[in-house]
Amino acid sequence: MRRLLPVAAAVGLLLLLAGLQPWLRFVLTIALSTGLAVLGIAMLLRAGQVSFGHALYVAAGAYAVAFARPHTGEGLLLLLLAGLVATGLGLLVGLFVTRYRDIFFGMLNLAFSMVGWSLLEKLYGLTRGTDGIRVARPTLLGFALEGAAWEWALFSAALAAALLAGALVASYLRSPAGEALGAIKTRETRLEFAGISARRVLLQAYVVSATLAGLGGAIGALATLHVTPLLAYWTHSGELVFVAILGGTGNVLGPFLGAVVFELVRVHAAAAFPDAWQMILGLVLLAIVLAAARGLVGLLDDLAVRLGWRG
């Protein structure tokens, strides 16, 4: 019950904000989709592994929506398809990258994402290059929605996906295979001497992380109704890692909290400093990492302890 209280509070706050301003509904939908991708990054961080290329799976989900849209009009079907495409790609790449750790894991992911980005840019006939592809608004559960009704429906779908993913991942992280992620970080060889394939542990989490990123990308594509190769660019991967560290990886709420704060700040800051946005992110990331801080979740936790809500 105590675990559900922060979740209920977060959902309440999101609904309140979304009701306040129409533009907030859009921003929060995007934030939830980012949070889904970041949730996957956070799983990998538990194993001490950082992927600098997960935007590849966000883009895979988004482009799956764009490519499939002319063939089907149902939004939920598009989300499902996008999840499947990202999962398949994650399995394919994962079989290779999970042979490696640390530097190799991080950089190989970056390399794969940059290949994906280049292909999206170069294969103009298929992807229309940097122009990207416009996505016609689909139906949701068969309803053709417009304006505020569409925004609310998509926001609700994103919220439902986030809640479901958060619950499943939280449960997975408490399972033996989930707990073994932390064991990869501290003493991987001992897992092998327990008869457990560390690579399989990591691969499982990697594939799940790709699915989550793909789902996030698909929701993002439905919100913006436009996909471009920039979705796969390294700066986007960097933002996902940034949000994971900002939110904190100790808890499945962290990625979503981080994403909401990040997207709300970005709405103003990225417009004010278009050429210094990455620099600001880099500086904040350095500050958090060097101070060994536990992100926003850690901050809230400390606050709760200080206020006497938690022992």
Binding site: L168, S171, R174, S175, P176, A177, G178, E179, I196
Partner: peptide
């Protein structure tokens, strides 16, 4: 039971 994804450790 190591790979049962939703049974706690």
């Amino acid at each position: 039971g190591f790979w049962a994804p939703f049974r706690p450790l």
